[in-house]
Amino acid sequence: MAEVKKILLIDDEKDFCFFVKQILERSGRFQVSIAHTGETGLTLAQQNKPDLIILDVMMPNMSGPDVADALLRNELLKSVPILFLTALVTEEEIGSRLMREIGGRNFIAKPVEAHKLISCIDNTMRCGDVNCGAVAR
């Protein structure tokens, strides 16, 4: 039996977080904690280092990239892989522009189907910070 991975989901859309938590935990492979702001997310990550952070790009106050910067500067958390989540960019842009501007990480666009989300999570954890190019479609 594989180890249950700890996932921190940071997104200001509460209902979205609720459903994603249910879906992921139901698979039995993940344990999901939720933060609705970047600040809370950072605090939670500090308290209980996750195996992966799913991070919404557009949030009020502290945006996704801001949170990512803070994580990178944190000795404890800088190695935690991040999966960006966004409602704004198109999938093609995920492959080019945002990657260049925010750093070589993985992205996924809303709305997302469960199996795509899970395969994206798996890819991101397997490749860590390295851009593995496996952008979900």
């Binding site: 859309e13 979205f16 459903f19 879906i23 409602a87 809303k110 709305p111 997302v112 189907e113 469960a114």
Partner: peptide, 8 residues
């Protein structure tokens, strides 16, 4: 965003 919620 709402589409994301409905989907999930």
């Amino acid at each position: 965003n709402p589409l994301g919620i409905i989907m999930s």
